[in-house]
């Protein structure tokens, strides 16, 4: 306290000078609008400057709360995204698929069920695709899957809304195929090497095969309809030990960009498979 008085005593002149100046400026502001505006602006500018810094500084202490709020808001917004509300495709109803007669009176054997690809692999030895359409929407194990430009694979597992497709790029995949020009049948496999090349075995050396020949699905397949595009002959390998060619087939389907596929339902599939697998005692 004593020091304060000493300080005031020592600087009494300076302090009174400043007080009188302040008094003059206050008086000036009260009489002159110009001066009032000017000093009000100046003081607002200064206080605004410090207020800005202060609130900026304070915001650091609120960061945790802000983060929590933002995270909560993100969750809420993500839940509202329209992409969360996709339902499995039911474009063709199971009921119409199972009718044996179509509108022109012929017996329907195959019907096509569109489905969306939601999972796809092509870099492994055994590749699978996942489709957003399952047993509730009419998909059954063993159905064939084709893409816009060629065959894709076979359904191996289904759940209620999802199905799993064994792609042609699978070491156990086996699809009956034939050459378009003379209907020589063979079987399509994959050697696990190049995702764009399949292997067609069991083509007799008596057939005249050229590079670029078209390969289609054969008429012997239970799940694939006949004459669907498989690919074109890319290379002919002559194995001297056997009587058959081994053909490298360039796939018609681009497995890297699959988006929409059709699942093919064969209404007589069960019948055919049952007979094929039955033991003939004779």
């Amino acid at each position: 306290m004593k020091n304060i008085f000493l300080f005031i005593q020592q600087y009494i002149n300076l302090i009174s000078f400043l007080i009188l100046q302040l008094l003059c400026i206050v008086l000036l502001s009260s009489t002159s609008k110009t001066h009032e505006t000017y000093f009000a602006n100046a003081s607002n500018g200064i206080t605004g400057y410090f207020n800005g810094y202060y609130s900026n500084f304070r915001s650091y202490f609120a960061l945790k709360e802000t983060n929590r709020k933002l995270a909560a808001e993100n969750t809420r917004l993500r839940n509202a995204l329209s992409t969360n509300f996709t339902s499995p495709n039911t474009a063709i109803l199971v009921k119409t698929d199972t009718t044996l007669k179509d509108s022109v009176g012929r017996y329907r054997k195959f019907s096509y069920l569109p489905a969306e690809v939601i999972g796809n692999s092509y870099a492994l030895q055994n590749n699978y695709l996942m489709l957003e359409r399952g047993s509730d929407q009419g998909i059954k194990k063993g159905m064939a899957v084709i893409g816009p430009s060629g065959i894709v694979g076979v359904v191996v597992e289904t759940s209620n809304n999802i199905s799993k497709v064994m792609s042609l790029l699978h070491r156990n995949s086996k699809v009956s195929a034939m050459l378009k020009k003379d209907n020589t049948a063979g079987s399509i496999e994959w050697d696990g090497a190049d995702p764009s090349l399949l292997i067609l075995r069991n083509i007799s050396k008596s057939t005249k095969v050229l590079k670029g020949d078209t390969v289609l699905t054969s008429t012997y397949s239970a799940n694939f309809p006949s004459h669907l595009m498989v690919g074109t002959v890319a290379a002919i390998i002559v194995d001297p030990a056997t009587n058959y060619y081994t053909l490298k087939i360039k796939t018609a389907t681009n497995f890297f960009t699959l988006q929409q596929v059709d699942v093919i339902s064969n209404s007589r599939y069960q019948e055919q498979v049952q007979l094929e697998n039955s033991n003939t005692n004779q």
Partner: peptide, 27 residues
Amino acid sequence: LIIACLFGLTLDLFTGTLGLHAAACVM
């Protein structure tokens, strides 16, 4: 300081700019 302030204020009362000359006088 106080006399200068009073003197300036007296002039300011006549000129109508209260505080203007007083501030300069105090200075």
